[in-house]
Design a protein around this nucleic acid. Structure first.
Lengths: 141, 141
DNA sequence: ATTACTGCAAAGGATTTGCATGTGA
DNA sequence: TCACATGCAAATCCTTTGCAGTAAT
């Protein structure tokens, strides 16, 4: 499960931080939860594994992990969702009506990123965008 | 100021809603506030015009206007910002470090929207996206 | 020993809701 | 008239913070 355990522990260490049991559990829960878990969902998983871990610890850990770029944060439906940032960037389409969500590779976005970079000089860093609209089934309604 | 007044009143009416003085004031404040006003900023403007209007009314009005597509909501810096949705779509680039924000036309996005529509069948409705990255000045740092 | 990390409890900000009253069509 | 809107106050949701105790290096 935590084949990246050592790796992540090292990255924490490089940042002057410590690998604690709580952080390990949060990381495990983050992996187990998949790519769009809210803080609350992660907290529930953490609680299953270790009921004594406090919600505040989960929030603090997520925030810490974000700062050192181990996790990505995005907003979907107005809520913050977290995921391990290791893999290649990907994005989502969410249906405004039924909530259906589909995953997208980065490919269709890379052209946009490049043109924006050329046009503006900005280096675009978003690795996990969430666009909204109507899914095919909901376009009739 | 409210050259669109009648128009908007009609759209409210078509949705079975009423044009009230409060809603008119919120709409005026929305216009006056420009394209990236938070609910709180709008409330402050409303309060200047009519101190008796409650914060809850502003929130309810913004939500109502969003539902009937008179206003657009977006998240910038984690905060919800509102704007009249009348004009053509536009987007923003925000610097993660210094907060600098530049405006973008929809053009570079339309290609992406089209490919996504072809690939997925989703009709993408976002008229006001906010991408983040590093502005030229902050890329060195 | 030092410094970071944790749990607990409490605070905080933003947004929503219940309810009685007011008001536009 | 009468369903919709409003003001007020309280509630709720999500997240952060202060502090004293605990643990890692």
């Amino acid at each position: 499960m935590t084949h990246e355990g050592l790796d992540l522990a090292q990255r924490l260490h490089q940042a002057g931080l410590r690998m604690t049991p709580q952080r390990q559990i949060v990381l495990d829960s983050l992996c187990a939860a998949g790519p769009h878990a809210t803080a609350e969902e992660i907290f529930q998983r953490v609680r299953e594994a270790a009921p004594s871990v406090d919600r505040a610890t989960v929030y603090r850990t997520l925030s810490t992990l974000e700062e050192i770029a181990i996790v990505d944060v995005t907003r979907v439906h107005g809520k913050l969702v977290y995921e391990i940032s290791g893999e290649r960037p990907h994005h989502h389409l969410v249906c405004r009506r039924c909530g259906k969500m589909i995953e997208l590779t980065h490919e269709p976005f890379s052209h946009l990123y490049h043109s924006l970079q050329e046009m503006t000089g900005f280096q675009i860093l978003d690795r996990h965008l969430s666009l909204t609209g109507l899914c095919p089934a909901c376009q009739g309604a």
